[in-house]
Design a protein around this nucleic acid. Structure first.
Length: 893
RNA sequence: AGGCGCGUAGCUCAGUUGGUUAGAGCGCAUCCCUCACACGGAUGAAGUCCGCGGUUCGAGUCCGCGCGCGCCUACCA
């Protein structure tokens, strides 16, 4: 065994210093248990690892000796599921390898408690709702059973936020328990929560830095709005859902005579119609451009205009533009200079309007008012039905005879934008929001993506597509409560209106702050919300605005430059591929804007867990398996094994039979290790052949791990280990039992020890518990090798002192003959101890040469009687080395 | 509709830059308690490598066209 390479840091071992990790029995030999009881052993080692602090980051070491992980902070208000176990195991495998090759590991834990999912959970669990107009009640305590009450209790913003804090703390405990049980090698002294003081400070610092750099702005503009959550949402949180809609064919009048037929799915927006558009090349409508149309019911006079986005093939080829039916309407409206008619309110109800005033002109004000009063105050879906009824009435197109609605509405498949967590379609509502500029930086952001290595590499395409397809700046403000406040106030003018055009920003030295409790500089608290005074920005930042800073949160960007330099950019960002557009994207944006850097060198993408029907496992589908039970039933090592078999980016079926395989491997490690004693001098051919195999496995596994391909590493290690147990161990164990201290016995013991020592280290990242347990029996030293997890990863240098085998193929030859002997016994339905009377082996000279060194082991393991061997020149069947004839003895000896 | 990925034994998956007769585990069948291991072991059966065409001495692998599945992006008239 080789000493660790020069210059390697003593990892997390405190005062223990590295020295030769050559295996030696400790003075007190631990008692070797007969049976493998995984729960007991896991408990024992979990505690010891804590005491030893082997997972602790050493802040004294420089960046190039450190391996830094941007740990995904789980949404603590979400449920624990096997997907967590899966992806967190992946990062832990890489981390454990890096630790063993000598890296100082920075593997922190974060909790994402901030944001809407937590608010929703707290509301349901405690039966409360935030009313920001209520005063804080210092005596209020959440009722844990509040969710069962019928009536919902309204609490102040501060009380609500405190309740969120209480709930998330409980949730974090459940996650921590799972992570520890699973054996993640996290440094628990490095924790953060995205709502804690430190994260709020970093998040607000980030905002102020972007203000200074001119990358953030606030504007009143039509924005995608969820009518249930009462908040704006960003492009990244929007998803398309298919829906059955109805096409209504509506007659519009044409000023000066004639009419038009317009197909729409949103008749309830008729009152918000500002124009009618058709494609400039559409022959049918050429003569209408420049004229005015008259809308039904509302009698509004709107221009008929050519517009490229009108598709002559769709509907009737001519459509109405409303403020706002969709993103196209918004875009077109912005360029048109036409007035805004906002008729959908923040709560998803139709707003009242006074006709004949402002933008709401009509050729028949009274009729328009009458029609609109019918739907004002209704939810959109109800309003739609009522409008359709009105349109079907005689005279609904004023000035023309007959109803405006032509025929029956026709079903149509439509795609509607929803907030990913929402239940009703998004609306475009004009509100004041904060945005980070991304549209003008697409090229730079694509270039940043190119500098990062994506695993698997094709996942970069997801990022590229997303950046190329951006169609709005990143909206970071949310009209919610449990989030990071904007460090912003506004002056209030003498008429009581806030002046949004020139916000006051908090001084960075005062962060974290809350403008709703902190007073703007130059004002006093009694001037809050008063004419001539100031007012706080009421919104909070979106969760992603904070979690986009996880690297900087951990590195103390803007706070501790020395620490920042030791941790940033990070090595790996592990995450799932469905959040490339949110988390990966936003983190890349921030790192580039703040420092012109990439946040990490590698992105590690885990796949999804699919249920046996190949559907993604998710809470909403009700097909989630709780991970704690799995760990108890199969052991942590077994569950980790299942995760480790899945390559990065590959979706994996939830398959308990793989846990079983994992458990067998861990049991095998345990049992084989009970057999294997410490090492000495290796000389026998078969033993040399074993070490030769170890060299290859070590090389392959190392190469795979260096490429982040833990699954390939596992595959070669596992296969080799089973060969070791099934063939090598079986062949040499009788030799190793010899009562005399023969060279053969010494060689066997030495090879067994060396091999097991290496195998345990190769397997340690995958099965940290069982390997640590058996390592402690024979190999643990008083230094870096106290734990297998801080022991050096095997290198071929360790095997340098062992000569190469003098003949090739010894192992293979032995396996072939042994298989023949076992086969003969199995076919004869005899036990494997049954004696062999004669063993005839015929083969070419070279084959016989490779067999010669191991023949004694074969005769012993096969229980061949003395003098029963007949070796001869001969032809072997195709693809084999030997023709073997086995004659069994008459009876068991 | 474009893009990315996938399709290999009943199931879950390997399969390097093309190279003998395509592998593993699970499951299944039959057998074996031998002093590491019955939480085990041995032996065996099982494949039109999605289809069609092409390149090549040779294709699971490379190219083209399909089919099926998953995801990403776009699509509210």
């Amino acid at each position: 065994m080789a000493a660790p390479a020069d210059g390697l840091p003593a990892i997390g071992c405190g005062s223990r210093t590295p020295s030769s990790p050559s295996p030696k029995r400790r003075t007190s030999v631990p008692e070797i248990p007969k049976k493998y009881k995984h729960l007991e052993i896991e408990d024992k080692w979990r505690q010891r690892w804590d005491e030893w602090e082997i997972y602790k980051w050493d802040p004294s070491l420089p960046r190039d000796q450190t391996f830094v992980v941007d740990t995904p902070p789980p949404t603590v208000s979400g449920s624990l599921h096997v997907g967590h176990v899966f992806s967190y195991t992946h990062e832990d495998l890489l981390v454990r390898y890096q630790r063993m090759i000598g890296k100082n590991i920075a593997f922190p834990m974060g909790w994402d408690d901030n944001g809407l999912p937590t608010e929703r959970r707290v509301q349901n669990l405690l039966g409360i709702r935030c009313n920001p107009h209520l005063p804080y009640d210092p005596d209020w305590k959440p009722d844990p059973k509040g969710g069962k009450r019928k009536e919902i209790e309204e609490v102040s913003r501060r009380n609500f936020i405190e309740a969120c804090g209480v709930v998330t703390e409980e949730d974090e405990k459940a996650f921590e328990h799972l992570w520890r049980h699973l054996g993640l090698s996290i440094d628990w002294s490095q924790q953060y929560a995205t709502i804690d003081d430190h994260c709020r400070r970093i998040s607000q610092l980030s905002f102020l830095d972007l203000v200074e750099k001119g990358q953030v702005y606030n504007v009143e503009s039509p924005t995608m709005w969820d009518i249930d959550f009462h908040t704006a949402v960003a492009q990244a949180e929007v998803e398309d859902r298919p829906r059955q809609g109805l096409f209504y064919d509506l007659r519009f009048g044409v000023e000066g005579g004639g009419e038009l037929l317009i197909a729409t799915t949103r008749p309830e927006l008729l009152g918000a119609c500002i124009a009618v558009v058709a494609h400039p090349d559409d022959e049918r409508y050429q003569k209408l451009f420049g004229k005015y149309a008259i809308t039904p019911l509302y009698g509004a006079r709107v221009p008929i205009v050519a517009a490229d986005h009108a598709d002559p093939e769709k509907g009737t080829g001519i459509l109405m533009v409303c403020t706002f039916g969709d993103a196209m309407d918004v875009e077109w409206w912005k360029a048109s200079g036409l007035p805004l008619k906002q008729l959908i309110g923040r709560d998803g109800k139709v707003l009242p309007a006074t006709f004949g005033e402002g933008a709401f002109e009509s050729v028949d004000t009274a009729a328009a008012q009458r029609a609109h009063d019918e739907i004002a105050g209704l939810y959109i879906s109800k309003a739609k039905k009522r409008v359709a009824e009105l349109l079907a009435e005689e005279g609904s197109l004023q000035g023309w005879s007959g109803p405006a609605l032509v025929g029956e509405p026709k079903p149509t498949d439509q795609i509607v934008k929803f907030f990913e967590k929402g239940d009703r379609p998004l609306e475009f509502v004009t509100t004041r929001q904060w945005f980070i500029r991304t549209l003008e930086h697409k090229e730079a952001l694509l270039a940043q993506g190119d500098k990062i290595q994506w695993h698997p590499s094709h996942m970069k395409t997801r990022y590229t597509h997303w950046v190329e397809g951006l169609n709005q700046d990143w909206c970071i403000s949310r009209q919610r409560y449990f989030g990071v406040p904007f460090p912003v106030w506004y002056a209030v003018d003498d008429s009581g209106e806030p002046d949004y055009s020139s916000p006051f920003y908090a001084d960075p030295s005062t962060l974290p702050m809350d403008p709703q409790t902190d007073v703007a500089p130059g004002y006093t608290e009694d001037q809050r919300d008063q004419p001539g005074g100031f007012t706080a920005e009421p919104d909070v930042m979106d969760t992603w605005a904070t979690s986009s800073m996880t690297p900087q949160i951990q590195s103390y960007w803007g706070i501790d430059p020395e620490r920042h330099a030791k941790l940033f950019p990070m090595d790996i960002r592990p995450q799932a591929h469905d959040i490339i557009r949110t988390w990966a994207f936003s983190t890349i944006v921030k790192a580039w804007m703040h420092e012109g850097e990439i946040p990490w060198y590698h992105v590690i993408l885990s796949g999804w867990i699919l249920d046996p029907d190949r559907k993604k496992m998710s809470k909403s589908k009700g097909n989630v398996v709780t991970p704690d039970d799995l760990l108890v039933e199969w052991s942590s090592d077994a569950v980790r094994y299942w995760a480790a078999r899945a390559r990065l980016g590959t979706d994996t079926a939830f398959d308990p039979s793989v846990f079983k395989v994992g458990k067998r491997l861990s049991t095998k490690i345990f049992n084989a290790s009970r057999e294997v004693p410490g090492p000495q001098n290796i000389s026998e051919s078969l033993d040399l052949a074993l070490i030769e195999r170890l060299r290859k496995v070590t090389e392959q596994a190392t190469k795979a791990f260096d490429a982040f391909d833990y699954a390939a590493a596992l595959q070669v290690i596992e296969e080799s280990f089973w060969h070791f147990c099934d063939h090598y161990l079986e062949l040499v164990k009788l030799r190793s039992y010899s009562d005399d201290d023969t060279p053969g016995r010494r060689s066997a013991l030495a090879a067994l020890g060396l091999a097991l020592n290496a195998y345990l280290r190769l397997l340690a990242p995958f099965m940290p518990y069982v390997t640590e347990e058996v390592w402690s029996w024979s190999f643990a030293g008083g230094d870096r090798t106290e734990s297998v997890h801080t022991s050096p990863w095997p290198t071929t240098a360790e095997f340098e002192t062992v000569p190469k085998p003098e003949v090739d193929g010894t192992f293979e030859a032995a396996v072939e003959v042994m298989t023949k002997i076992r086969g003969a016994k199995t076919i004869a339905q005899k036990s494997l101890r049954w004696p062999v009377a004669t063993l005839e082996i015929a083969g070419a000279e070279s084959a016989r040469e490779s067999l010669a060194p191991v023949i004694d082991d074969i005769l012993r393991a096969g229980n061949v009687v003395d003098g029963g061997l007949a070796l001869a020149e001969g032809d072997a069947p195709e693809g084999e080395r030997f023709a073997v004839t086995v004659v069994l003895g008459d009876e068991e000896k």
